[in-house]
């Protein structure tokens, strides 16, 4: 298991290295001259040259990359051009706020999705099953930004239950903090639940027909125990994979939701820095997103191994 984790970490290191090259290259071909952006439209050639020299922009691209990458490895993410502050703390704050949003969302997606999936699998073909299907299909069909607007209009505008936008730190009180989270989380969760519930349903139905479930019934186990002990654990294996993919989709969703709800997280920071052509910030932000995604996949694989002893114990044959 330790070796397995180690292998996966090695994979992630390779992925991040490759991604760093791609990110650096992509930001290089972005239109506009960085030095020009910094010194402003009316600067003299001399000023621009000075800035270019200071930032090392005249060096060959690979030298610039290596300098950037070396700094990264030392934990130095660079300095934001627009805000003129170190990127590290900026991103850290944003990540923490986004992590709250994403974490609460993915937990809810998993809990609601798995519950609905198992519920409709066990009641396959009944009215309840159809109702769940139609409901989840409806939510998955509506795009997030549209949902966000509807939700704001209804719950913030018309009903006035929750604040429409913004973020409140925990120090303002738990209630206030939670109130600001409800609408963005609801928007993020609504679309993703269907992925999990549909997949859990079909994998649960398949598992319920498997030979070992029939064998469990033949032992005389009551149906509730057959489902809980024998079916559920095996049926959840594919669900874990989908949850990891959903973490990726959640990142995309967060950019939209944070923008609509003016939530000061990583997504909004990224959009802002792209608009402002704050290249070091964009690079650091995207690399962070990549790392988070890779780690989510690692977590999924480890969970997968937990549910699937074949990975945990290799193929060692007991004599």
């Amino acid at each position: 298991m330790l070796l397995y984790t180690f292998k996966r970490l090695a994979y992630i290191a390779v992925i991040l290295a490759v991604m760093s090259v791609l990110i650096f290259w992509a930001t290089q071909v972005m239109p506009g001259d960085v030095a020009q952006m910094i010194v402003g439209q009316f600067a003299t050639d001399e000023q621009i040259r000075a800035v270019r020299g200071r930032l090392g922009l005249d060096d060959p691209v690979h030298v610039q990359y290596l300098r950037w990458a070396a700094a990264l490895l030392r934990g130095d993410l660079g300095v934001s051009m627009m805000m003129d502050r170190p990127i590290g703390p900026l991103i850290e704050d944003a990540i923490l706020r986004s992590a709250v949003l994403a974490g609460v969302s993915i937990v809810l997606v998993a809990a609601i999705g798995i519950f609905l999936g198992v519920y409709s699998a066990v009641r396959k073909g009944t009215a309840a099953d159809h109702a769940v299907s139609i409901g989840t299909y409806f939510f998955i069909s509506v795009p997030e930004f549209f949902w966000a607007i509807i939700v704001i209009l209804l719950f913030a505008g018309y009903l006035g239950w929750f604040p429409a936008t913004g973020y409140a730190p925990m120090s303002d009180g738990f209630g206030t903090w939670l109130q600001h989270l409800v609408l963005p989380v609801a928007t993020l969760v609504s679309g993703l639940v269907a992925h999990v519930s549909r997949l859990t349903r079909s994998s649960m139905i398949e598992t319920m027909q498997s030979q070992y479930v029939i064998a469990a019934r033949a032992k005389g186990l009551p149906e509730a125990l057959v489902i809980r002990r024998h079916a559920l654990r095996n049926a959840l294996v594919p669900t874990i994979t989908v949850l990891a993919i959903d973490v990726g989709m959640l990142m995309g969703g967060i950019v939209v939701v944070e923008t609509v709800f003016s939530y000061p997280g990583l997504g909004r920071l990224l959009i802002f820095s792209i608009e402002q052509k704050d290249i070091p910030m964009v690079q650091a932000g995207i690399l962070t997103v990549t790392a988070v995604y890779a780690m989510a996949n690692l977590a999924a694989d480890l969970l997968y191994a937990f549910f699937n002893p074949r990975i945990r114990y290799g193929n060692a044959v007991a004599r």
Binding site: Y212, A215, R217, A218, K219, G220, L221, F307
Partner: peptide, 24 residues
Amino acid sequence: RRALRGNRISIVFQDPFGSLNPAI
């Protein structure tokens, strides 16, 4: 009926590869 199953009447199925739960 359930109290009899696996207790006083039990069965061995054809497929030993599928009849055991892989996770237990």
